[in-house]
Design a protein around this nucleic acid. Sequence first.
DNA 1: TTATTAATAATAGTATTACTATTAATCAAA
DNA 2: TTTGATTAATAGTAATACTATTATTAATAA
Lengths: 224, 224
Amino acid sequence: MDYSLNFKVNEKIYLRDPEGTELGRQIVKNAIDLIYRLGFEHFTFKKLAKEMNTTEASIYRYFENKHRMLLYILNWYWSYMEYLVVFQLQPLANSKSKLERLIELLTHPLPESEDHFDYNKNILHQIVISESSKVYLVKEVKEINENAVFKPYKDLCARISEIIQSHNPAYAYPHSLSSTLIETAHSQLFFSQHLPKLTDAGTENKTAFVERFLTDLLFKSLQP
Amino acid sequence: MDYSLNFKVNEKIYLRDPEGTELGRQIVKNAIDLIYRLGFEHFTFKKLAKEMNTTEASIYRYFENKHRMLLYILNWYWSYMEYLVVFQLQPLANSKSKLERLIELLTHPLPESEDHFDYNKNILHQIVISESSKVYLVKEVKEINENAVFKPYKDLCARISEIIQSHNPAYAYPHSLSSTLIETAHSQLFFSQHLPKLTDAGTENKTAFVERFLTDLLFKSLQP
DNA sequence: TTATTAATAATAGTATTACTATTAATCAAA
DNA sequence: TTTGATTAATAGTAATACTATTATTAATAA
């Protein structure tokens, strides 16, 4: 079976669909690498242009600014994650195994697809951990939110809520618990890597640690 | 009883102690207001200087850059919070009421002190909610961390851990649960204010909602 | 095939931001 | 009252974020 996965990202996010041209695809691919290397604050369109031998103005034809570019990347990530939640968890026998697998998905890089033109999933995961909150922790969040650009995050959250509710229909905070799982996966992975005193991660594998912590947190929260 | 509270902030954070001069104190006070009004990304030293009728260069004599200034403000906040955790929770009868009061502290603005020269606590709390993660979610986190500038956060986290451990000595993740409580208080307050679909907050008071959610999360996690 | 139009990218800017070197003013000690 | 030291203000520069215009290429019609 040969198929390719494509997530249509809300067209309000870009000026010109980067999926539509080779240059557009290269811009996003290289942006992911460069945001990872420099961090979002030091990342600029000029540096990206130099990196890939094009011009700043060409990049501005695709994205209004670097914030929108990051939003595009995260929309893609959230959409892919929702896809995985829907199709990878469905076949599982019960809500318990679904939730266990969910935490595995949230704490690991996205699984590699067959697609040979593809983003580097490990690097993408690191960006999600370090940079994702910067797309909504801004003064303009209200106006940005008006074009439904956070819909993939909300949809992902709603999907997880469904599983939580099927596990324990009496639980009162399914959406908050979902967003807390997502955010805590990121913050605990970041802390265990960079500020380990804020965690209980020892010398062991950080991902495995966060997985254990979140599994404990989730199932205890859902105890009747 | 007349006393004044002073938290000595790590001197690696500033170039010149803003507590030492009237101008320094005004800079920090006005910075809190302006960061709140503009958001950290749009906040600049030039705008702050104009706001308070001084010069950009004068501000640069106190702080290397705006990131250090935010770090200073957050160090003050974390130190104050640790103080409250130590002295306000100590007299309480048992670990259960300590933890309940802790969540109240984390979800509400800091209590007002007698000090008539003082920061606006409501605005400070909003900054903590929206901007605090930006001080560590940067590429330079390792070098920044080397001067112990996150110590107040780690200390606060350690204090909370102690209470958690006294409540349930068998619990395996006291530090991670502490940092998760702090971070989740911020993210859920932010979401309930701006992206409510990521939470289960209804029309009710957002602070009360987050308080209920965190209380549920905490005590269920600590069930034996 | 050539001329016309449309799409795209590159050049060359500007305004703002982040930061610094230098100068001016103020104050305290000798 | 002079010297020295501390402080703030002036006047910059380099980098960043963004845009208007021009040049180039590709597509289509005559």
